[in-house]
Design a protein around this nucleic acid. Sequence first.
RNA 1: GGAGGUGUGGCCGAGUGGACAAAGGCAGCAGACUGUAAAUCUGCCGGCGUAACGCCUACGGUGGUUCGAAUCCACCCGCCUCCA
Length: 435
Amino acid sequence: MSILEELKWRGLLYDASEGVAERLAKGPTTLYIGFDPTASSLHVGSLLQILGLARMQRYGHRPIALVGGGTGMIGDPSGKSHERQLLTADKVQENLVGLREQLGRFLDFGDGDGSTSDGGSGSDAALVDNGDWLMKTNLVEFLRDIGKHFTINYMMAKDSVKTRIDKEEGLSFTEFSYMLLQSYDFLVLHDSHGCELQMGGSDQWGNITAGAELVRKLRRKKAYGIVQPLVTTSSGVKFGKTESGTIWLDAERTSPYRFYQFWLNTSDADVVRYLKYFTWLTQDQISELATTHGETPQAREAHRKLASEVTAMVHGADALERAVRSSEILFGAEISDLPVAEILDVFDDVPSSHQPKEGFEGDGKALVEALVDAGLAASKGAAKRLVRDGGAYVNNRRITDERARLTSQDLLHGHLLVLRAGQKKYHLMNLAEGA
RNA sequence: GGAGGUGUGGCCGAGUGGACAAAGGCAGCAGACUGUAAAUCUGCCGGCGUAACGCCUACGGUGGUUCGAAUCCACCCGCCUCCA
């Protein structure tokens, strides 16, 4: 199976330029995907792109991950309905550091430094920053050498521009120029790394084809583009967002436990599609899981496999093991029988806090207050409602008395408290002696 | 600069002197069902409060009229449309 065929059955081939198949059939090439430093971490939405590079690498091609230290200063209007707030230079730099670190984990950089210009031999990945050339570019030269090859007519015809022109708010010249910068990146990488292909999300199609055309015009060489679909959930909710926020790839921002839970909670309608998108499982393995899921959906085998595959890939086998274990402990029925060590283990993964023990002496602390302290309820009124609705649990046992008080009797092993709101939101409280 | 319109809770959107913490919808939360899924149904959905048709805060801002204002008046601010 060729890489294109693989992308196709995975549903990852949204569009590709003419001649890509022929070019890829001829032998290894060099390709790149750009990542914008809009945050200091990538999130699950970017995972598809990263995997795109990794998949190409497995087929012998050479991937380049480009971080937008230069373009990040401008902001890509593609797929955005409003003019964006500019990031400060410091912020861009800060984010760049985080992105570099993360991207490095998914690609094989071989033994070299990855950024050499050996003309594209071998499939060792490279990591580049377009700030390295964009920040040094001279405006007048840029307009003469690059700008001259774009007509306004051509740029206005792009969807990303057109939709913004139609809006009242319009589009600043700054963002309008973004396409030129991205096209220039392609040209630079073509010259320095022999890069012939750019990949990206389908919202990047306009920018990618613009770059490919620039390479063709100026170097009289073919350049190609492949775009992958933007991930959507079947219920129309933005992928990668949960009630508690974005799911990041950084373990500091989204614990492996929550990461694992995110995938485990995938809806049935999406699970097979996500297996294709986000794992390395083969066509056979996935169709087997699809069958199992069709027959015994309640076993949730496809979900488990998805969650463990992706968690292991992003956070490693150890983190996965802990996440699974934590899930078993928390979703198990009788928590009070567990040894301290096991419960404490979960502390690393689940939102937790240390609270002074004093409040629990004597007649104890009001349950509603504890829920607010734990961040499981926004206010005492909200906490009370939660209890009244039957959504509050202490040590996995439902409490329905809104005036309940927690005393030292409720503490596991004398200092641990497991609070829960609803089915899935946990908080572990460690009551330190006199803390 | 002129004329008109508009600004309500996370969003949309009713409400033109009291019964308004403000209809309805969406989003969100919880429960039931089930499988840590979806759909559906039920309840909740400003804060405080043991509770209450109790108190506080809130209908762009400030000030006023009134026993009483989201609702009326004045000025200011934002946004929109048309004219110049």
